[in-house]
Structures are given as structure tokens and as C-alpha cells.
């Protein structure tokens, strides 16, 4: 019998301690969705619209920067509400780590997380070589197509907006697309959608390139190489530089901050580590450690 991922952490921190951020994220995802679905509550529209564009309490506009960039590319000159809305969303996610959107809000995340969990539990091993840079090419394509066709081509298929819109306004056959993503992640490419393809995530990566809020392997000396963090991480390639640094060359000693903008700030590594190597912190912790 193989050791299950997270056994050490459950032993040392208990079940709640091991799944703290996962539970918080599910609550965050659910609450965001429910605010859209159940509004108006007692006459108040807490959130109205969907993730593409919405209003808080019928006053504060919010717009997704990726969708706005697509409309700009199509040649449409937007009005103030949309520009203001995407500035608010862009600024907010810059502050808390661009891809926090992916792990704390995006409705596709639970689907791909489920596929990741299922493939781990079922021991499905498959390798289909797909570059993690692909998403930036698809992002480029998603911004080129509106410029060429004048149509928001990506939004015809975008599963993120499709699922969120569908859950609020009616899904129709849209669930087939979501099922497709689940099966793709499960059988074709591990973490295929969120980690390789989704241009919306790529856009939030770019927004969060200089985000102050990052995950830090501050206690990395305690690491005993159980590899659990790599197993649960949706972007495992981001961990190594922060956790292991580059010991061979002191000049380019890296870490302990996970600086890669592909990190989704989901906090699974923090929870799954039985010796508490990781924590949330500021991206400037690197400098502080080097100049004590």
C-alpha cells in the first residue's frame, strides 16, 4: 500500500489544519457564486451580472480585464464603466496575486481540482507533452482573433465564463464543455486546462507578475523531501526554485519566495506540509533574508 499524500500533515496538524486553505477556497468560490445567484437578498443586489462584468450593490462596476482586452482588440471603444471596472479588478488581483482569481474565485477550479484529486487517487499516470507556455500563445491568439474577425472569438467557447454564466443564467448543453475539461485533465494532460491552456489564467499571471502577496518557503531548512507539496500543487514547477534555491551557485541563490506568476496562491502547499515550510508573505522577503 502506498502512502497517501498528506498523511504526515494530517498526523501532525489534524484534518482541519491540513485542509484549511482548501476549505476556505471552496467557501470563497461558493460564496462568490451564491452572491450572484441569490441576489437580490432582501432587495439588495450584492452582486449582479457575472464574472465578465458585474456591479456591487448596483454601484461599483467590476469587469474582467481579459474580456476587456478582447473587446479593445476588436476595435470597440469601451465606456467608462468597463474601464473603471477592469481597473478595479486588475488592481485587486495585482495586490493579492494575479492567479488568486484562479484558485479562490474561478468556478472551473473545483472541476480541475477534482480531476487532479481523482487522477492521484486512481493512480492514473499519463504523460502528454504539452508546454506550460502554451497558455500565453493561446492568450495571444485570443487577442488576435477579435482584431481579425471583430468577434470575441474566445468568448464563444471560454469555459470559465460559460460555466459561471451558465450557473447563474442557465446552462443548457454547456455542461458538456465542462465535462470535456474534466476528462481532458483526468486522462490527457494532468492539470491540463488550468496549468497549460487557459488564457484567462495566463492573463491573470501577467497581472500578478509583480504582486506583493506571495507564498514563501520561509522554513525551507526543515524540508525533508516528502514531495507532498509537489503532488498537490497545480503548478509544481514553481516550487523548486523557492524551496531548493540554486545551491550550486551562490550568486544566483533563489528563494525562498515563490516568485513565479503562475503560482495560484491557493495555499495547498502550506497546508499539506507537515513541518510548515510555507507561509503567505511579501515578495520582498527575499531581499530581507539576504540583507539581515
Amino acid at each position: 500500500m502506498t502512502l497517501q499524500v498528506g498523511m504526515d500533515a494530517i498526523k501532525s496538524k489534524g484534518y482541519l489544519g491540513t485542509y484549511r486553505f482548501l476549505i476556505l477556497r471552496r467557501i470563497s468560490q461558493l460564496v462568490t457564486l451564491l452572491l450572484f445567484i441569490t441576489s437580490p437578498i432582501a432587495g439588495y443586489w450584492l452582486l449582479k451580472g457575472n464574472l465578465s462584468s458585474s456591479l456591487i450593490l448596483e454601484t461599483v462596476p467590476l469587469s474582467d480585464p481579459f474580456v476587456m482586452l478582447q473587446t479593445l482588440a476588436s476595435g470597440h471603444s469601451p465606456i467608462t464603466a468597463m474601464l473603471l471596472g477592469s481597473a478595479i479588478i486588475g488592481g485587486f488581483y495585482w495586490l493579492i496575486g494575479g492567479r488568486s482569481f484562479c484558485s479562490w474565485v474561478c468556478p472551473v477550479n473545483p472541476v480541475t481540482d477534482l480531476a487532479g484529486w481523482a487522477s492521484r487517487r486512481l493512480g492514473i499516470r499519463r504523460r502528454f507533452p504539452l508546454s506550460r507556455h502554451l497558455r500565453y500563445w493561446i492568450l495571444t491568439l485570443a487577442l488576435l482573433l477579435p482584431a481579425i474577425t471583430g468577434v470575441l472569438a474566445w468568448e464563444l467557447v471560454n469555459p470559465v465564463s460559460l460555466l459561471h454564466r451558465g450557473l447563474i443564467f442557465g446552462m443548457g448543453m454547456g455542461w458538456l464543455v465542462i465535462l470535456g475539461i474534466f476528462l481532458f485533465d483526468l486522462f490527457v494532460v494532468p492539470r491540463g486546462w488550468c496549468g497549460h491552456i487557459c488564457p484567462m489564467g495566463a492573463c491573470y499571471s501577467l497581472i500578478g507578475k509583480t504582486s506583493p502577496l506571495r507564498i514563501i518557503a520561509s522554513n525551507r531548512d526543515a524540508c525533508y523531501d516528502c514531495m507532498d507539496c509537489y503532488a498537490v500543487c497545480p503548478e509544481p514547477q514553481v516550487i523548486k526554485p523557492a524551496l531548493k534555491g540554486n545551491k550550486s551557485d551562490a550568486q544566483v541563490e533563489q528563494g525562498p519566495v515563490i516568485l513565479s506568476p503562475n503560482c495560484t496562491n491557493c495555499g495547498r502547499c502550506i497546508d499539506i506540509c507537515s513541518v510548515n515550510v510555507f507561509e503567505f508573505g511579501s515578495r520582498f522577503a527575499n531581499r530581507m533574508e539576504k540583507h539581515p
Binding site: 474580456v67 470575441l152 460559460l162
Partner: peptide, 23 residues
Amino acid sequence: GACLRCGLCVRDCPYDTLKLAQI
């Protein structure tokens, strides 16, 4: 090229005239 597919027009239509297209 301009519509964000946000459904705010649907929400504010008092007669439930407007619908958002499904796939």
C-alpha cells in the same frame, strides 16, 4: 466585439424579455 456577455441587461429588464444565449 463589444458585448461582454455579462447579463446585466437581462437582469435589469423588468419584463424578463431578454435572455442570454446558451451554447
